[in-house]
């Protein structure tokens, strides 16, 4: 990164001129470590310290009563042999993939559409964003009532829902959770894409029109490539959100039927706060941290996001 920045600043003049330029910049007060101190302290206090405490707890047996008791790798051995843990990881992965696959196309389409200047779009967009203002708990309770097999929508539309046992089958329960997640989070991602789409210079579209490109062609050749970095941001948010989905599972399915929607984040809660086994709960939390970090790294590497290339270069 440093070398990259240096080279850019250096410009065509060559590397000899770049060194004085750098030292000159620092003499006018380039931000030092002190500037990062407040953020670092908060990050250490609220992220690193709890993380370290969780890591320590994962090697103990603790029910919240008395002192944690060191048990070595016992919790980890339990987890490795636990079929529910393995299943929960696969389920989490499934939730992430399905979440990204369903939300991304919809948010891009809605976002690009909402970026237009027509007055009706502003009004409709405002309505679309309502789910964004509701808490996850409220949304879950709402959909739980709407999907009641006897008194909700399924009871009225038997040709579509059959006996309405949506939350009693694995496919149905996962479908409901993905749908509710989509309903809840699409507005947020739409907002991101709307902002990004508004930022695409109109000259690009004007040029394309002159070249004879229609709306569809413009969308695929200009809009989508210009939204690339936004898409990566949005997808990373979806991945992290998918990994930590919790309230909807707790309220809509409680991890059921059986353990069929017990995703890792919910399993962590169950072990720690329903079974009062904070040791195993902490171990699951650590697994989540590692998995989330790995996935983020992979997304950043694969997408080339780490190179921070501007999509407006040359304009």
């Amino acid at each position: 990164m440093t070398t990259l920045a240096t080279r850019r600043q250096a410009g065509p003049g060559g590397s000899t001129e770049s060194r004085p330029a750098r030292s000159g910049a620092s003499s006018v007060g380039r931000p030092g470590f002190a500037w990062a101190l407040p953020a670092t302290i908060f990050f250490a206090l609220f992220a690193l310290v709890p993380l370290a405490a969780v890591a320590v707890l994962s090697f103990t047996s603790w029910s919240g009563l008395g002192d944690p008791e060191f048990v070595g790798f016992e919790n980890w051995e339990t987890l490795v042999a636990d079929p529910v843990m393995l299943k929960s990881l696969w389920l989490s992965l499934l939730f992430i993939v399905l979440g990204v696959v369903t939300q991304t196309p919809l948010s891009i389409l809605l976002g690009v559409w909402a970026a237009g200047h027509q007055r009706n779009r502003a009004v409709l967009s405002a309505i679309y964003f309502i789910p964004l203002l509701l808490s996850s708990a409220a949304i879950s309770v709402l959909w739980r009532a709407l999907l009641d097999p006897n008194f909700g929508l399924p009871g009225q539309l038997p040709w579509l829902f059959g006996d309405g046992n949506l939350l009693g089958t694995q496919a149905g329960a996962i479908g409901v959770l993905i749908f509710v997640g989509m309903w809840q989070f699409t507005p947020f991602h739409t907002l991101i894409y709307q902002g990004a789409a508004k930022g695409i210079p109109t000259v690009l579209y004007q040029a394309a029109s002159i070249d004879g490109a229609g709306t569809v062609r413009q969308f695929f050749s200009i809009t989508l490539p210009q939204l690339r970095n936004t898409a990566i941001t949005s997808i990373i948010l979806m991945v992290v959100g998918g990994l930590t989905t919790f309230e909807t599972v707790l309220i809509l399915t409680n991890g059921g039927p059986g353990t069929d929607t017990t995703i890792t984040a919910f399993y962590m809660y169950q072990e720690a706060f329903q079974s009062f086994d904070f040791g195993v709960g902490s171990a699951i939390a650590l697994v989540l941290v590692v998995v989330a970090t790995l996935i983020s790294l992979v997304v950043v590497k694969v997408s080339g996001y780490d190179k921070m290339n501007s999509s407006l270069e040359g304009l």
Binding site: D148, P149, N150, N165, L166, P257
Partner: peptide, 23 residues
């Protein structure tokens, strides 16, 4: 118990309403 009992709750009024509404 029918077929969809796994989607019904007592706590949100689902199963008691089944009884009181004669279903």
């Amino acid at each position: 118990f029918g077929t969809n009992f796994d989607s019904v709750k007592f706590t949100d009024g689902g199963s008691p309403t089944l009884l009181s509404s004669g279903r």
